Simulated scan of single mutants.
Amino acid sequence: MSEPILQLDGVVTDIGRYHILKGVTLDVPRGQVTMLLGRNGVGKTTTLRTIMGLWRAKAGRILLEGQDMAPVPVSSRAALGIGFVPEDMGIFSDLTVEENMILATRSGPLDPARRDWLFAAFPPLRTFWRSEAGNLSGGQKQMLSIARAMAEERRLYLIDEPTKGLAPAIVSTMVGALRELKAQGASILMVEQNLSVARALGDRAAVMDDGAVVWAGAMAELSADPALQERLMGLSVEAH
């Protein structure tokens, strides 16, 4: 396994009186796609939100290339080079697609070559470039949400269930775009319930249960072992 770009060591997160993360330990290798898997409600989204500082860790350490994230304010974490695609997409509906993309860049105007690459990956962005984002379909909004995270090259991408509720044709477009990002050597931590997507993209897998990582290893190993899938998640990759 390559050197970790992100390390979580015993991360504990409480939300109100609820204990959500109960000691998450996880390494995300540089230049690979790590799939964060598990049943609903086990803490996957909370893990990503804790990395971004949207929920504060009560205990444990989060290290980005060895840098302790604890003292870094929420407003500065994206500036460290983290691209975040939240589950709720978080687009600005009253702004155009172009304006949403401009807001996602930190180093000046959107690079034309990068824009054209995103147009090729997500053709509807070109079609609706000057349209208000609120007028897009659900699948088009998800494309925009992912494209914003990809507006510039990032050190790390955190992506929360990008294919949830989408039609198969749109899922195929998403997978193609993320494959291209992976081919560029991107480091990605991705929550995904569609296990066929996880198998298509993932190099590594980490399975969560009850607020902790209970298994971590090669995605290929998990894909090849239906009994392990059933034990960890109650379902089979082959069935999805």
Rank of each mutant, 00 (worst) to 15 (best):
L136A: 06
S137N: 11
G138S: 12
G138F: 10
G139R: 09
Q140T: 07
Q140G: 06
K141S: 08
K141N: 13
Q142A: 07
L144S: 03
S145Y: 04
S145K: 03
S145W: 06
I146E: 10
A147K: 02
A147S: 06
E152T: 02
E152A: 07
R155G: 06
R155D: 14
L156P: 00
Y157L: 08
D160C: 03
E161T: 01
E161S: 07
G165Y: 12
G165F: 00
A167F: 10
A167D: 14
P168M: 14
A169Q: 15
A169W: 06
V171T: 14
V171P: 06
V171N: 09
S172C: 07
T173A: 09
T173E: 15
M174C: 10
V175W: 06
V175A: 08
G176R: 10
A177R: 06
L178S: 08
L178Y: 10
R179H: 15
L181T: 02
L181Q: 05
K182S: 13
A183L: 11
Q184S: 15
A186W: 08
A186C: 05
I188H: 10
L189G: 04
L189F: 07
L189M: 11
M190K: 10
M190S: 05
Q193C: 08
Q193M: 07
S196H: 14
S196D: 15
V197H: 09
A198I: 00
A198C: 13
R199Q: 15
L201K: 09
D203S: 10
A206E: 03
M208D: 00
M208K: 00
D209W: 03
D209N: 11
D209C: 03
D209S: 09
G211A: 08
G211N: 11
A212S: 14
A212H: 09
V214P: 00
W215D: 09
A216V: 02
G217H: 11
G217I: 00
G217R: 12
G217T: 07
A218Q: 11
A218K: 13
M219D: 10
M219T: 01
A220K: 15
E221F: 02
E221I: 03
L222Q: 03
S223R: 05
S223K: 05
S223A: 15
A224W: 05
A227I: 02
L228C: 04
R231K: 14
R231F: 04
L232G: 06
L232T: 00
M233P: 01
G234K: 04
G234T: 05
G234C: 08
S236G: 04
E238H: 11
